[in-house]
Amino acid sequence: MPRFPEAPKPALIHAAAGRGGRSDVWSADDERRPARRTRVGREDLEGYYPTAVDDADQLGLSDVVPHDPTQPHHDQPDPTQPDPTQPGPGQRWSTWRSVAKGARGPEPLPEWVVTRDAALDTELGILKTGKEADAFLVERAVPEGAGPASDAPDLALDQAATRCLLVAKRYRSLEHGQFHRGSEYTEGRTVRRTRDQRAMEDRKSAWGRAVSATQWADAEFVALREAWQAGAPVPYPVQIDGTEVLMEFIGTEETDELGRTQAVAAPRLTRVRPSDDLLESYWDQLTHGMSVLARLGLAHGDLSPYNILAHGERLVIIDLPQVVDLAANPFSSDVLLRDCRTVSDWFIARGLDVDPDALFADLLAQAF
């Protein structure tokens, strides 16, 4: 049955003909003119079709507020409000899936790493500025109501992390960097593609400058991967994307009396005053980390109390972009000896009897 019943034939009004044509509208004196058309009532229509105000009472709609045309419709987004489905200021979608597999951290993946596609990276502030890079604090978190964790196949669904704090270390271009001792560390260092190696030797070309700008980030990420897998006390490297290295945040989150949570980075070793027992434990942890690097054929290259974090009773070695290949770099012995003497001087100044030359000899023996 059609929604509207057909009108009686006599009630139909024929349309006028085109310009200059004969009109089929009946005149007042025409005997053929039918009686006045009867108005079609609501009861003649199919179903109930409320049109009067009284019908609202019958339907229970008397309390409905009429729509104000000056206000945005409830189905339309308010252009003055941020879109909850899009990243806001200082945010981006997680880049975990957008990087190549080889640009992610080593297996086994720690349970705290967030791998969800729905996660947002929010920049929380700057942690440290350096000669060649700046470190930023980044929160990677899955917003509430983002759905099931079916987009995190790296971990079991019941173990998929939803929030973690990361350090985003972003390297500057060669024009804006302040690190001028590169040749001492890059001597003997190679890259995977010979085209990139040739470009690095020609700093005047745009491609050469671009490759040189990323070599520090690549060197640190690779060194962190190898060191972490070998058991050295270094931050876990989450991923690398161009000149940005994302790694584990070493620190804690503290809540003040007002209920506000704040991330507190672990202090550098130069700022702590450990007890005698803890000082000796720190030395054992540090020499263990240096030994792991030596067995990998590497020296830190710039090891000092400023590049070591004291996270409670745990030491963590950071800043590894200038790692030196002990076999290929002709300056490797000098660099390693400098590392040994720099860290030993700090421990000796605090009363621990250590021998930097003995440490140097032991590391060389492990390397070769």
Score class of each variant (00 low, 15 high):
R3P: 06
K9H: 08
P10G: 03
A15H: 08
A17F: 12
G21C: 13
V25A: 10
R33L: 15
R33E: 11
A35D: 08
R37Y: 02
E43C: 05
D44K: 07
G47T: 09
G47N: 07
Y48I: 15
Y48L: 13
A52P: 04
A52S: 13
D54E: 13
D63V: 08
V64M: 03
H74M: 11
Q76F: 12
Q76H: 14
P87D: 04
Q91R: 03
R92M: 05
S94Y: 03
T95H: 04
E111C: 08
W112D: 01
V114L: 06
R116T: 02
R116V: 00
D117W: 07
A119K: 02
D121P: 04
D121H: 06
L124P: 09
I126S: 10
L127K: 10
K131E: 11
E132C: 10
A133W: 00
A141L: 03
P143D: 00
G145K: 06
G147N: 09
A152T: 13
P153M: 03
D154M: 14
A156R: 14
A156Y: 05
D158N: 11
Q159N: 11
Q159M: 07
T162I: 13
T162A: 12
E175V: 11
H180K: 14
H180R: 11
H180M: 08
R181M: 00
G182H: 10
S183N: 11
E184V: 12
T186A: 12
E187I: 07
T194E: 12
D196F: 06
Q197N: 15
R198P: 03
A199H: 06
M200K: 09
G208S: 07
A217N: 04
V222Q: 07
V222Y: 01
E226W: 02
E226G: 07
E226M: 10
A227T: 00
A232H: 14
P233D: 07
Y236C: 03
V238T: 10
E248Q: 12
F249Y: 05
I250H: 04
E253D: 08
E257G: 01
L258R: 09
R260I: 15
V264G: 04
R271Y: 12
R271T: 13
R273M: 05
R273V: 08
P274N: 02
W283F: 01
Q285M: 09
L286M: 14
L286K: 11
T287M: 13
H288V: 15
M290C: 14
S291Y: 15
S291I: 15
R295Q: 14
A299G: 06
A299P: 01
H300F: 05
S304F: 05
S304E: 06
S304Y: 05
P305V: 11
P305N: 08
G312Y: 07
E313D: 14
R314A: 12
L315S: 06
I318Y: 10
P321D: 01
V323E: 01
L326P: 00
P330M: 00
C340S: 07
R341I: 13
R341Q: 11
R341H: 12
V343T: 06
W346S: 08
R350T: 05
D357M: 13
D357E: 13
D362N: 08
L364Y: 10
A365Q: 15
